[in-house]
Design a protein around this nucleic acid. Structure first.
Lengths: 122, 122
DNA sequence: CGGCATCCCCGTCGATACTG
DNA sequence: CAGTATCGACGGGGATGCCG
């Protein structure tokens, strides 16, 4: 890894970068985006497919993603109401790097658990 | 992006994955790891090179990274004391995916800011 | 120099209840 | 069905001060 690339993550001192990263890397965003990679989903579908998320946090996460232009929110004027969420091109472009990080986490999870156990035993 | 890959991030329901991701993707971890990509650094060096981090959070972040086996902490028995931090191979392996995400954030930061401004103006 | 201990604020998050 | 409103607990994280 050469310095050019390293420079990138350190960027402007990390301020702007960290602001974006904080939005993306929070507790639920990556999981919601990854779930939407399946295609268009309704609110309830997401609620069931993202395990452990509360209605409140799903709503907030979706609002943030919509605000940042990563997903679209489509309200159908029907009874009962139907609201569909889908990734925008920008949102889709987040999938590969998100999976890269997720892949790393999965690949190194056992090692991390082991190291953590060894650390606790000291 | 096919379903096999998507499945990965959704994994076991996201529980284990999110636990690891929460550790890695927090406010400071990625920046500290990226800074250590330069090579071995002392505590004060890190404090200066990671802008905005408090002494407390730098200490905590370094302890977590050490516990998880991503960095090594070497204390030199000298006066004044000297403590050096360096990435382990596991820590180094986090750099590429971290840069992928950072690259995405930098590339899309203008678009996100724009979308956010448009959203606020509604 | 490189921490750890303490205090305290504030944002995050879940639970619950209510609405169109 | 798809939210909004409100409350309260919790913990991240900054400021400060002390220590080996």
């Amino acid at each position: 890894m050469d310095y050019e690339h390293t420079c990138m993550i350190r960027g402007d001192g990390g301020r702007t970068l960290r602001a974006i990263l904080d939005q993306i890397c929070n507790k639920w965003t990556l999981l919601v985006v990854a779930t939407l990679d399946q295609g268009t989903l309704r609110f309830t579908d997401l609620h069931h497919q993202v395990p452990g998320i509360s209605q409140r946090m799903l709503t907030l996460t979706l609002r943030h993603l919509e605000r940042d232009g990563l997903i679209t929110r489509t309200v159908h004027a029907e009874v009962p109401p139907r609201v569909e969420y889908a990734l925008t091109p920008t949102g889709e472009s987040l999938i590969p790097p998100a999976l890269a990080l997720a892949g790393w986490a999965i690949a190194h999870a056992p090692g991390i658990e082991e190291s953590r156990a060894a650390y606790a035993a000291r």
